[in-house]
């Protein structure tokens, strides 16, 4: 009885090792993160960005629907009267620390001004850095990255 147990445990041990051994010949799936980067899907919901139209004008008209839809009150918009009596967006802030990346703001936008990018590296050194202003949202996102 004892010998049987020893033999079966050795067999199991070899079987287990064989799985490990077999994996030496399978290509690796782990990303070596700071040095290697993941290409996200087109539908990935990362950092928001604001868009301009074909003539380079800001698409956002400051209707505040995104701010209204936001479940975590992450968006703050201040509007006022600009040149030629038109509506001007004075400031547009998204607090990424509060954002859930649910995408409701993008769905609400009637002007297709707001969209989500594949940007997911949003860590930064202080809370103030988590607040993205209008300038930052119109440019390509300015995010903190690992550098060699």
């Amino acid at each position: 009885m004892k010998i049987n147990r020893v033999i079966s445990s050795i067999i199991e041990f070899i079987r287990g090792l064989s799985v490990t051994f077999w994996h030496l010949f399978v290509p690796s799936v782990t990303l070596q993160y700071p040095r290697q980067r993941w290409t996200v899907s087109d539908r990935y919901r990362g950092l928001e960005r604001l868009a301009v139209d074909e003539e380079g004008r800001e698409r956002c008209v400051g209707c505040c629907l995104c701010a209204q839809m936001c479940p975590s009150n992450a968006i703050k918009i201040v509007t006022g009267e600009g040149k030629d009596y038109n509506k001007e967006v004075i400031s547009f802030e998204i607090d990424i620390a509060r954002c859930l990346f649910c995408g409701l703001c993008v769905e609400a936008c009637p002007k297709n001004a707001l969209s989500m990018t594949g940007e997911y590296e949003l860590a930064c050194y202080n809370r103030a850095g988590m607040i993205y202003t209008k300038e930052g949202l119109y440019k390509s996102p300015d995010v903190t990255r690992y550098k060699k």
């Binding site: 400051g62 209707c63 505040c64 701010a67 209204q68 509007t79 006022g80 009267e81 509506k87 001007e88």
Partner: peptide
Amino acid sequence: FKYKARLWE
């Protein structure tokens, strides 16, 4: 009130 806020806010 022009462009100062939206009414629902």
